[in-house]
Nucleic acid binder design. Structure first.
Length: 555
RNA sequence: GGCCCCAUGGUCAAGCGGUCAAGACGUCGCCCUCUCAAGGCGGAAUCAGGAGUUCAAUUCUCCUUGGGGCUACCA
């Protein structure tokens, strides 16, 4: 019998001459301090990275960083059909944008970096085959020649018979005990085959395991003889690759989304058959969103939700810091409280823990994300804003980048308005907002589309503006400047005190606020703006006069 | 169908047997104010339902319901 397994193994894998021992030696244990976690982000290059996968990557990164462990990136590309062009590049650049940098893995030229590589699964084929051969040799796995149609038939029959489990097992597992001769005949006939692992479980068996975020979980064991090598490519599906790779790469903690929870029993069996120690699992809830069609919550999907793509956020210009800050709020339920206690602290000082990971999936909340981002940007220095804005614009809005770069001092000046005060202005959520918000500082972008209202009268305005320009002195401090405006206003029926006006609105044409707004609209085109005094100062008398005139002309 | 996970306001959530059920985002009102933003103050808004256990359930157990996921030679 034993001898037969040996022969089957050689028949199936004639070219595999290495043994598991070889690889065990090649990838020795890591030397890390006690408690250090080895984590990995293991995406398949099947599309863009979205908020949900970014959160998982963020967990991996943070837990490794905070325990002084290792975080590596592995590309799971064993499904050739779903692999997309530039998939790997996309993943790497998205991660890099948000500064989730792996210690080992794949660099932007798709080279493996690190001692435990290669980190691209299709390049690890020989390793998988070696272990699969060993499993066959030990009688724990076997070739299955059933066709897709036969498998479908089995399922139909099981459904018809109301079997409690669907799958390849028991009397349905026709290829489980094929003799050497039968196998040989099939191989010679060049029948395609898969390799299946013999399940050790019987119907009704239960398994228990501990999940780092969910605690103890019990469920029925997997009785299915799972495929560990696919036909044709002889590449492993996720389950087998996961076991081999995470063992050889010495992963301590597998952090992955909740949809994997059901396959843990299957994974445990694979690890056991291979004689591997089980890593710890942490199954996190996926980020959800409202399906625009059905109005219900569901898992974010690569296919359906392009707007949650990381590349989309990069394009919109959300800074890495904002994304991190928001990711923290999703990652640990106590982060927001911590942030309120420590408003200025570096977010990396927050200690992420498994027990504060929410069990239920959060909805991606754009309102909240924008608020978080506005706060993050409001707390940056003008120089920081300038640098990040320009580097964003130089990719996504070249014209804007050029204007900003032409006169850095000028840009820094207007970005400083309302910034270095007790409660800095919170108006920018993403870099793509800035052109609308601050474009009027440039004649090139000032389109003279004014937000008017019924109080604008040409005669009065031209007088007010003339007086304003005549009396304007750039050396005036804010109080003097404002007093002058009040005086001018009073000359034309605008009371200096807003309260006075509110008490008796019909007695006046308006109040000093209206006068300010005339100037504001003329200068910026907008009814809302940052501190007008600062804007005036920055523009200077000449530029103001020009804009004021231009505006009067349009009335 | 089977199995699994989840369940407090619109959203994120604190709570871990006795609370007037925190807080944040959003929303509404007021104050401040040259506009807006910010800030301050305040309001509306939540324990899915039903059985137990208990002197006492948001909290523990069970059932129902709802949402989500898995049930592939996808990951």
């Amino acid at each position: 019998m034993n001898n037969n397994y040996e022969k089957i193994a050689d028949l199936l894998f004639p070219n595999i001459d290495k043994t598991p021992e070889y690889y065990e030696k090649l990838y020795p244990a890591r030397h890390l301090q006690k408690g250090a976690e080895v984590t990995r982000f293991a995406p398949s290059p099947t599309g863009y990275v979205h908020m949900g996968s970014l959160l998982t990557a963020f967990y991996d990164y943070m837990f490794a960083k905070q325990s002084v462990g290792v975080f590596f990136l592995r590309i799971e590309d064993t499904d050739l059909e779903r692999t997309v062009e530039k998939g790997v590049e996309g993943i790497i650049s998205d991660l890099a944008q948000y500064e989730i940098n792996a210690d080992e893995g794949v660099d932007k030229d798709k080279n493996s970096v690190g001692m435990y590589g290669p980190y691209i699964q299709t390049q690890r084929k020989e390793i998988y085959l070696t272990y699969a051969k060993d499993l066959v040799r030990r009688g724990l796995a076997y070739p299955c020649f059933c066709t897709k149609e036969e498998i479908d038939e089995i399922r139909h029959e099981q459904e018809k018979n109301n079997e409690c489990q669907i799958g390849y097992y028991g009397k349905y597992a026709k290829c489980r005990d094929l003799s050497y001769e039968e196998i040989k005949k099939n191989i010679e006939a060049q029948k395609p085959f898969v390799i299946r692992l013999k399940s050790t479980a019987k119907v009704g068996d239960r398994v228990k395991f501990v999940d780092k975020v969910r605690g103890e979980i019990e469920m029925s064991d997997s009785i299915n003889d799972v495929v560990i090598l696919k036909s044709g490519t002889m590449l492993p599906p996720y389950n087998f690759a996961h076991a081999i790779d995470d063992h050889l790469m010495h992963t301590t903690t597998v952090i992955r989304s909740n949809e994997w929870l059901n396959s843990v029993p299957e994974h445990i069996q694979i690890f056991k058959a291979l004689g591997f120690e089980q890593p710890e699992y942490a199954h996190v809830a996926f980020v959800q969103r409202i399906d625009p069609e059905t109005g219900t919550k569901r898992k974010i999907s690569k296919r359906k939700d392009p707007e949650t793509a990381i590349s989309y956020m990069v394009e919109a210009g959300y800074p890495a810091k904002s994304v991190h800050e928001y990711l923290f709020t999703l990652a640990n339920t106590n982060f927001e409280d911590w942030r309120i206690q420590n408003p200025k602290a570096d977010m990396m000082d927050f200690r992420l823990t498994y027990d504060k990971i929410s069990l239920s999936g959060a909805l991606f909340d754009l309102d909240k994300f924008n608020d978080v981002s506005k706060r993050v940007i409001a707390n940056m220095t003008a120089e920081e804003v300038y640098d990040k804005l320009v580097s964003w614009a130089s990719v996504y809005d070249k014209k804007w980048a050029e204007l900003l770069s032409n006169d850095k001092d000028y840009a820094i000046k207007f970005l400083s308005i309302d910034r270095y005060i007790q409660n800095p202005r919170k108006d920018i959520a993403k870099w793509s907002d800035t052109k609308d918000l601050y474009g009027y500082f440039y004649d090139e972008l000032f389109d003279k589309k004014y937000e008017l209202d019924e109080t604008f009268e040409k005669d009065t305005l031209s007088k007010i503006f003339a007086d304003y320009i005549n009396s304007y002195d750039e050396n005036d401090d804010k109080n003097v400047w404002f007093d002058k405006i009040k005086q001018i206003g009073e000359r034309y029926g605008f009371v200096a005190q807003v309260k006075e006006y509110k008490k008796n609105p019909t007695a006046y044409k308006g109040h000093c606020g209206h006068v300010c707004n005339f100037i504001r609209v003329a200068l910026t085109g907008k009814r809302t703006s940052p501190d007008l005094y600062e804007i005036c100062k920055l523009f200077g008398k000449e530029k103001m006069a020009k804009r004021l005139n231009d505006f009067v002309e349009t009335l």
